[in-house]
Design a protein around this nucleic acid. Structure first.
Lengths: 213, 213
DNA sequence: TAGATTGTTAATCGATTAACAATC
DNA sequence: TAGATTGTTAATCGATTAACAATC
């Protein structure tokens, strides 16, 4: 068997894979067992050839005339995205945003578990649900002992850069950044940024363009 | 004077504009009054020509040898993105995510005000901060009376589609969707989707690719 | 077999980058 | 003036879409 390796994949393709996976879950619940690129294309408003290329880039293959086996395709995509090996993450920030992320149900299904919560200055005995809020100073030691690779950054903008640097120095390899600050930590650490201001700007501009007509 | 009209702008350009604005705020705080494309390009890792085209698409113009007047550029971009005319929004969903969005400080600076909060079944007298949580059944009437055009969707996936349809029928023109559901409401309504699963997938895949090397 | 679908190669389209003229 | 920067046109690059061969 050929060694499994991560295919090179374009950013746009990568971003579409979770959409396919979401549809696959729906279709599986509906009892379907085979799917074709046209199904995806119709449901998402994409070109069938584009879907085919995306799936191929993720290592999936189908059969002419038949399509793709739903369960097999789902497993292939889930493995490609890393949803099968359990990812453990540290969350920094116990404000409203941190709480919202902790309460989000979707992470478990996508192989992400928040194993601890930190804050710069937690109140004594502070807990969120069943989780204690630990002081940030304990993060580096725990990163090393638990080999946690993902850090979720949900702190105010002013603190974000310092906390990110602390994470990076402690050995965190990927940062999911919810603070409205661009982070540049070099090529050895992955940063994925959720930028609300950016998204809001797009919404408002498209809205203005729509109202003009 | 030529009538101000929304220039056609590519999606990638539009998404970069908020990044420029954020830098402009920083530089203004630092006392700078003139900026050049090279400054932006260096700070964001972009090509200077690309920055110039983005700014031009937003209607900004500078002077050779001098660059752009900081204050003027900031005003031009802010107007282009609609940050100057106050946008009022209704928030639906009073769970952790809704609370986090209500607590987010960045909206005011970007001309967005959440004027009311709704939930399918609010507890009697339920409040978040100073805002009462209203029953969703009151949304359509209030949309019409207050002429609110933006709806923020922060409800569970299962409810999202129905709530979105209610919003659309009531006259909401733009939906900022935080639920993990793709919405298709036709061309007369703008939907901007914050997709955590998508972002997480990108983070994890890039992380896996990094660790392979 | 005929027809539908995958997989792949070629063409098109759009965004980025490079080159250069205009200007203060 | 010389030099730096804008504005614009041309070239490149990458992603999308179209065409078509392979296959079940």
């Amino acid at each position: 068997m050929i060694a499994l390796m991560t295919h090179p994949i374009s950013m746009p393709s990568l971003r579409r894979l979770p959409l396919y996976l979401r549809l696959l879950e729906q279709w599986r619940a509906a009892g379907r067992t085979q799917v074709s690129c046209t199904h995806f294309a119709d449901a998402l408003g994409l070109d069938p050839t584009q879907v085919r290329k995306d799936l191929a880039a993720a290592g999936a293959s189908g059969r002419p005339r038949v399509g793709y086996d739903l369960k097999q395709l789902r497993d292939t995509l889930a493995r490609f995205l890393g949803w099968d090996n359990p990812g453990e993450a540290f969350l920094v920030g116990s404000g409203p945003l941190g709480r919202a992320l902790l309460a989000y149900e979707g992470f478990a299904a996508r192989g992400l578990t928040i194993v601890a919560v930190f804050d710069r200055a937690p109140a004594a005995q502070e807990r969120i649900g069943d989780k204690p809020v630990l002081p940030l100073s304990k993060l580096p030691d725990l990163v090393r002992r638990m080999h946690v690779r993902i850090g979720i950054l949900a702190v105010p903008a002013a603190e974000a850069e310092a906390v990110a640097r602390t994470m990076a120095e402690a050995g965190i390899r990927g940062i999911w950044n919810f603070a409205p600050v661009r982070l540049d930590l070099g090529p050895r650490i992955v940063v994925e940024h959720i930028d609300l201001a950016q998204s809001l700007a797009v919404l408002r501009h498209r809205l203005a363009a729509l109202e003009e007509t």
